[in-house]
Design a binder for these strands. Sequence first.
DNA 1: GATTTAAGGTCAGCCATGTTGACTTAATTA
DNA 2: TAATTAAGTCAACATGGCTGACCTTAAATC
Lengths: 168, 168
Amino acid sequence: MADLKSTTKPLFLREEDLRQGIELLFYAYRDFTAEPDAILAKWGFGRAHHRVIYFVGRNPNITVTELLEILKITKQSLSRVLGKLIEDEFIHQRADPSDRRRKLLTLTDKGQELERELTTTQMARFARAYRETDAEAVEGFRRVLAGIINPEDRARVRPRQRPGSGRG
Amino acid sequence: MADLKSTTKPLFLREEDLRQGIELLFYAYRDFTAEPDAILAKWGFGRAHHRVIYFVGRNPNITVTELLEILKITKQSLSRVLGKLIEDEFIHQRADPSDRRRKLLTLTDKGQELERELTTTQMARFARAYRETDAEAVEGFRRVLAGIINPEDRARVRPRQRPGSGRG
DNA sequence: GATTTAAGGTCAGCCATGTTGACTTAATTA
DNA sequence: TAATTAAGTCAACATGGCTGACCTTAAATC
């Protein structure tokens, strides 16, 4: 743990350091998804359902098109998953009054409950990781990961302040 | 970008901050895998092949069992992917002289070439992200992501110094 | 008002990649 | 010699991506 780390200030980009980033991301994502996967399996859902539940919960009244932009999958792929969530009453849809072609998606009570169960495990993981470090490390984590995201989507990830502010 | 960030030192774990972590990880992983996926498609390979190529390249002479421990998938899942990579001569296997049940896996020249092409895109992404920040941010990123990984696997991700040191 | 565009949905089929379960072979170890 | 370990195999199944074609409804535009 105290190898080249002590050469703090100057930022040498050794291949080793870059590969370490790649591997951290791989392992973190692998473990980060494992617990929710187990919960989802109890309901006959998969990881794709989780993503839909998460982002609908996070962006109440999101439309299908907006959801597709976040997930970057095809309409057909989404519809299979979303259709099942609506059928099983985890997600509710209603027409947008101002443009009745659009369907606004929200979580039902049941959906919120599942969302919370799933997200709790992932938040606990982050809470632990944050607590093991400090505020500066967390800020560094944010800035580096934001830099990994394609520039056009970085704005999607910013802590929202006011309740009921909806999506960006 | 300068919201609650200025409350630097004390580490309040607001749900917003935890959800931001979740979302950063989702978007980062989504974009991080997109470029390699496109390269792999040209060869008729998928993301699973990439992971095998990457970790064999990273750990020359790794065994099948060790690879399974890293990937956390079943032997049957791996064998389909690994079998194709061996058949197409991206990966070479030979018996371990000291225990001939074990097969030691290495990249062929062709395999190394593909590995480099794939990894270059991901290293470039990290190089950009690292350069956009500073050494402290990078260190924070490392520590937080390491905290997301299950404790028993954290040791896997540490920059290796000496060439030919093999896996841990 | 008629046409074009946008949002959403649907059907069919394909492919990649995960799973379980059962079983085999070869080599090492107890 | 018997048990264990490493690897491989066959079959069947589920999830969740994809393409392509096509439809409906509502809004926007000509």
